[in-house]
């Protein structure tokens, strides 16, 4: 049994977000982090490793510096990393990205007993599409929004969250699950883990390494392989500031209540 976790390095949108004059994101000026939901997927995998001793493999697609993120995940306890990286992969939308990551996962190999984990969605695009699309490309059953995962041999029981409750779903390995933050609390790197992180294997998968996979050809990756195009991106205008009321005492509150009543809002 092994667990393959697909992760993404993303700009930290909770901090300062810088936008270029042309409406694109100034990524260079932003801190990068491991996508939060993906951290829950990594933690779920490491918990399975704690319980069963299974191998945990982390996979990402991104530019060469994303190796730093993989090393951090190795310092948390993952065993191996794969970095899918190549100019040919640039410009991919979620569909093309899923094809490429699926080919990378194929290269590692998914067998009976294995689990592929993804985060629910990435905070840069918020699409939540890559997980299910990888599952489709790998012909694996999927369970999304996993808030609890129980593994009993080949049988997996997942608590799948809905807006108004949850479902309990049984699925057999191999399968793909997407994880949400309710699933667990991601661990920190450990000091000992950090000192081991750089001696663990990280394999770079470039176009050459993946091109023999049936999922990969010139029409399935990059811009050509992306069914969607961005027509335009833009920043929304700020709503104008309203009225700052003087003071913060009872008279101020009475004045506000008076305005609201006058406008028939209350």
């Amino acid at each position: 049994m092994k667990v393959i976790v697909c992760v993404k390095q993303v700009p930290d949108t909770s901090g300062k977000v810088a936008v270029n004059p042309d409406g694109t994101l100034n990524r260079a000026s932003m801190e990068t982090i491991t996508n939060p939901d993906d951290m829950n997927a990594v933690e779920a995998a490491l918990k399975l490793k704690d319980a069963t001793g299974c191998k945990v493999i982390v996979v990402t697609m991104g530019p060469p510096p994303a190796e730093g993120m993989l090393r951090e995940l190795l310092a948390m306890g993952a065993d191996e990393g794969y970095l899918i990286s190549g100019r040919e992969f640039g410009g991919s939308d979620t569909y093309a990205t899923s094809q490429i990551v699926a080919a990378g996962v194929n290269k590692i190999g998914v067998e009976k007993g294995d689990i592929v984990l993804c985060g629910r969605q990435a905070i840069d695009g918020d699409t939540a599409q890559v997980g299910p699309q990888i599952a489709e490309k790998l012909h694996l059953p999927q369970v999304t929004y996993a808030a609890d995962i129980q593994v009993d041999g080949q049988d997996i029981t997942v608590k799948r969250m809905l807006e108004d409750g949850y479902m309990t779903i049984k699925v057999k390995t191999p399968c793909l699950l997407t994880c949400i933050k309710e699933l667990n609390e991601p661990r920190y790197m450990s000091v000992g883990g950090v000192f081991e992180a750089y001696s663990k294997p990280v394999t770079v998968l470039d176009y050459e390494a993946l091109k023999d996979d049936p999922l990969i050809d010139a029409t399935t990756i990059g811009l050509k392989g992306s069914p969607t195009n961005i027509l335009v991106s833009f920043t929304p205008p700020q709503k104008g500031a309203g009225m700052m009321l003087e003071g913060n005492d009872m008279a101020t509150c009475e004045k506000l209540a008076g305005i609201l009543a006058g406008k028939h809002i209350i």
Partner: peptide, 10 residues
């Protein structure tokens, strides 16, 4: 996208 900092038409 990007936490609402950007909008995009696809």
């Amino acid at each position: 996208a990007f936490g609402g900092h950007l909008m995009a038409s696809i």
